[in-house]
Amino acid sequence: MNSDPLQQAGENAWQDTKHVHSSLLSITYGCLVEQLVKDFADIEAVNEITKRMGSFIGKRVCDDVLSHAQVSKCENVKEALQITTKVGFRMMLNIQPTLTTTPDPKIFVLSFPENPLSSNVEIPTELNDIAYSNIICGVIEGALELLRYEVKADFVKEVVKGDHTNEIRVEHIRDIPEQISDIFET
């Protein structure tokens, strides 16, 4: 047994899940990005759309991860990110990013050397501004929004762009407050 309950939960969730070949995921995502690049001349628009799609995924996947993580509450954004890395990423992509804190308590860094979405990808020079796996940043933003943390996630390093590892910088913007008055007004 693993001593870290979250890590164990991630391991269990991965074992319990039915798997498909990772090529299906990388090819599907590749076709999606290909089509977006054809449809939009502006690379920024492509980056924005992949992130927005990720955000939708995050909102749907959040409960799936939490129902396996066996946590009843999460107290702060760091705990939420620990669940994201140890259970979420492990369960969905079979990778476990290292979560590092920075001197600024609002900024966290997730680093992972392997990215199943882009393992077969080479980016042509004219598309150098594309954030190829931006969908992952969207997933983090969407999932944490559901837990009432507004964050901004962006790639700062990508292996497909020649960096030695993938790094996502997560900035905690604010807690989305939950007030009893919200409940009574709705």
């Binding site: 959040c62 409960d63 939490l66 129902s67 999460c74 559901l146 939950e178």
Partner: peptide
């Protein structure tokens, strides 16, 4: 009861 961290 079970209240999830997402509020359900």
């Amino acid at each position: 009861c079970l209240r999830t961290p997402t509020g359900i």
